[in-house]
Design a binder for these strands. Structure first.
Lengths: 153, 153
DNA sequence: CGCTATTAAGTTGTGCGCAATATAGTTGTG
DNA sequence: CACAACTATATTGCGCACAACTTAATAGCG
C-alpha cells in the first residue's frame, strides 16, 4: 500500500493495528460458527459456558459479567436464550432476591465434553504454535489493561 | 488461574487466545467512542471513511466491502447513516445501474484533518510502542489469512 | 434478439454490545 | 421503623455483523 503523497499517511488502513484486530475477531467468530455447529451455541454463549464449566457452581449475572466484561444488557437476553436451549437454569437467589443465580443443567454440563476439542481445532485454524498463541494472548491482555486505564482516566 | 483437576483444562478461559482477542476489540471500540467524539462517527463508520480518504475517488459498495471484509447487509444501512450525517453521497453509477458509487462530500473530506491525531492517541492508550504495534498487526493479519483459508476449506 | 446466468445492492431476521433508564430488593442511618 | 442510598437485574433503543433472500440490472450465449 503506497501511502506516500498523502496529507495524513498515519490514517492508512494497512498501517493501523485496529483494523487487523477487528478483522481477526470477526474471523475467529466466523470460525466458531463451524466449530460449534451441533452444539447450538453462538460464540458469546460458548464463552458464558466456559465460565460456568470452570466455576462449577452457580454464578450471578454480575459475576459472569465481570469475568467476560459484559453488562446485563448483553447477558440477560443471552442467558434467556441459553435457558430456552436447556443449557442453563436462571433462578432468583432466595437469600437475596435481587440476584439471579445461573447454573448448569445436566445437558449444559454434558456439552463440555462435546466441545473439548474446539480449542485445539481453533489453534490449528489459526496456523500458529501454542507458544505464539500464548505470547499473543499476553500482549492482547496487556493491551486491554492499558485501554481500560485510558478510558477511565 | 488454577486449572489443575479439571477434566478439560484446555477449556480454561484464561488459557485461550480467543477471549483476549474478543475483549481487546471491544476495548478498542470503546476507546474510539471517546476519540471520535465530536465527529459523529462510530468506529465502523470511521473505518469506511479511512478507506474513502485513502482511495480519494468514488468506490462501489462491493469495493468498500472487499477492503473491510463487510457485506452489503452491514454496509447499506451504515452508508445510509453516513449519508444522512452529510459525510458521503450515494449515487447509482450511470454506466451500470446495479452499482452504487460512494463518494465524499466536502464535509466528509474535512473530517480527515479532524481525526488525523486519532491513530497516535490510540497508540498511546494501548501503551505499546510503534514497533510493537506493527509486529502485532502483522501477527493478526497472518492469523486472519489462516482463518479465512480454514473456513473456505 | 431472447433467454438464462451472473452480479450488485437492498431487505429481513437474529444475536450481540452497550448506553441509558427503570424496577425491585437490600442496606445503612438516624 | 422510616427513608434515603445503594445494588442487581431487566428493559429500551441504536448500531453493527451476517446469513438468507429479494430485486433489479447486466453479460453471455445460442
Amino acid at each position: 500500500m503506497d501511502v506516500s503523497g498523502r496529507t495524513y499517511p498515519q490514517l492508512a488502513l494497512d498501517l493501523q493495528l485496529c483494523f487487523p484486530l477487528y478483522a481477526a475477531t470477526r474471523a475467529v467468530t466466523k470460525r466458531y460458527v463451524t466449530l460449534l455447529e451441533g452444539t447450538g451455541l453462538t460464540y458469546p454463549q460458548y464463552l458464558v459456558m466456559l465460565v460456568l464449566w470452570e466455576a462449577d457452581e452457580p454464578l450471578t449475572v454480575t459475576a459472569l459479567g465481570h469475568r467476560l466484561r459484559l453488562d446485563s444488557g448483553t447477558l440477560t437476553p443471552l442467558l434467556k436464550r441459553l435457558e430456552a436451549a436447556g443449557h442453563i437454569r436462571r433462578e432468583r437467589d432466595p437469600g437475596d432476591e435481587r440476584r439471579v443465580l445461573v447454573s448448569l443443567t445436566e445437558a449444559g454440563r454434558a456439552l463440555e465434553e462435546q466441545v473439548s476439542g474446539v480449542p485445539q481445532q481453533l489453534g490449528q485454524s489459526m496456523g500458529i504454535s501454542r507458544d505464539e498463541a500464548l505470547a499473543l494472548r499476553d500482549q492482547l491482555t496487556e493491551l486491554v489493561d492499558h485501554l481500560d486505564a485510558a478510558d477511565s482516566a
